[in-house]
């Protein structure tokens, strides 16, 4: 029912979603902490920029990334000098997913951080814990469920990423073709309906598993 190419697409999808989520996590946490705790000027602007991919059409995000990271782009030309190419590679797919999923991650973590009793953090400091110590023993454990929720959302969003990916990374079977891109290709192919449907089913199962796993982890956290 599934061709070897389909299995490659599934593997690539999981690879892109996992890498994008893990790469975005430290930055996502840092930005969320900045938005939740600090009183720096220009907070609204940072917030706007972070949330922009949430409201922009993914195609627009992809196109802007292409302008930015393309061979003649500002960052692209710089990377090109070091022999690093982003567009039409798996890196491009990961970057596209990271950017599009980032606001979901930040929003979720930020809500979690804002719900922490700030005096708990102060108490830890006066009890002799340094800033980093407090981060790892109080702040992260107390926002762990929110971090997990953010990662789940971002992972799921990355699995389904299409618009930005197809522009930045193209639709190259075996290289950048993830499940949504493969489905798109099948639907424009005569007689590809059943193949598309099989991948749709895989997509549904994967998403469902993500939800189940995150729910199970959440329950365990509550119990502990």
């Amino acid at each position: 029912m599934l061709s070897p190419d389909d299995f490659t697409a599934i593997r690539l999808s999981l690879e892109v979603a996992t890498t994008a989520t893990l790469l975005a996590l430290p930055a996502g946490f840092a930005i969320a902490a900045l938005l939740a705790f600090s009183h720096i000027p220009g907070k609204a602007i940072i917030e706007g920029i972070v949330n922009l991919p949430l409201v922009l059409p993914p195609v627009v995000v992809g196109y802007l990334l292409l302008l930015f990271l393309g061979r003649h782009g500002w960052l692209g030309s710089l990377l090109d000098r070091f022999g690093i190419q982003v567009i039409f590679t798996l890196k491009g797919a990961i970057i596209a997913s990271s950017v599009v999923g980032f606001p979901l991650l930040v929003r979720s973590i930020r809500l979690g951080l804002e719900s922490i009793d700030k005096n708990c953090i102060f108490a830890a400091r006066t009890l002799g814990a340094s800033w980093w110590d407090t981060l790892f023993t109080i702040t992260i454990p107390l926002s762990f469920r929110a971090i997990l929720a953010g990662m789940t959302l971002m992972f799921a969003r990355s699995l389904g990423e299409f618009g930005a990916t197809i522009i930045l990374a193209g639709n190259i079977p075996g290289v950048t073709q993830t499940i949504p891109l493969a489905i798109y290709q099948y639907t424009s192919m005569p007689g590809g309906d059943s193949m598309a449907l099989s991948l749709c089913l895989v997509s549904i199962i994967l998403s469902f598993m993500v939800l189940l796993v995150s729910e199970a982890m959440n329950r365990r956290l509550i119990r502990n």
């Binding site: 102060f122 006066t126 814990a129 454990p141």
Partner: peptide
Amino acid sequence: LPPEKRRVGVVFQHSHLFPHMNVAKNLFYG
């Protein structure tokens, strides 16, 4: 000096215990 270097303890109006730790872990945190 940062708070952790001052050795000035604080008891707040509300207890602000760490909700993810039991009583013993709270007591021995500092």
